[in-house]
């Protein structure tokens, strides 16, 4: 016999794990029904936020809005339904999904990294990290 619970506003117990969503809960187009302990609840899909604090109706988060900073240095933010993209400025090269840099100092050989270091580009330059088993500041790596 499974554990029994009394759902909110109901007369009678149900078993734990009861599928409330299967009863036909109506969630808006950008929202999904989720089963909780004692009831069903609407939850905004990833990349969407509730309108008026009620997750039955959700709208796309505009990651490119003026006050937002989801995209970092040297990018152009492009808003998408449920997500966004950070495109590199023309001629800039990608550092990660969120930032770009002007010069590929690692590929060009214009870097200070020891041969036993790993070079990573940053938005303003580059960093050198000694490989495992080596110690140093990256410009110098000793076994």
């Amino acid at each position: 016999v499974g554990e029994q619970i009394l759902p909110e506003g109901r007369c009678c117990n149900v078993c734990r794990g009861y599928d409330f969503c299967a009863e036909g809960v109506i969630c808006g187009e950008n929202s999904e029904c989720k089963n909780r302990n004692t009831k069903a609840e609407c939850e905004c899909k990833s990349g969407y936020a509730s309108i008026h604090g009620d997750s039955t109706y959700c709208e796309d988060i505009d990651e490119c809005a003026t006050q937002m900073h989801y995209c970092q240095a040297n990018t152009v933010c492009v808003n998408l339904p449920g997500s966004h993209r950070c495109d590199c400025l023309p001629g800039f090269i990608r550092v990660d999904e969120y930032s770009c840099t002007e010069h590929d100092e690692c590929a060009s050989g214009l870097n200070l990294c020891d041969e036993n270091a790993i070079c990573t580009n940053t938005i303003r330059g580059h960093l050198c990290t000694c490989k495992p088993g080596y110690v140093g500041n990256g410009t110098i790596c000793r076994a």
Partner: peptide, 20 residues
């Protein structure tokens, strides 16, 4: 919307203070 973000220290409308 599409937004330019040329350099993190110039012309940003977001207060860096607002970010973690």
């Amino acid at each position: 919307t599409v937004k330019d973000s040329a350099d993190s220290s110039a012309g940003q409308t977001t207060e860096p203070f607002q970010l973690p």
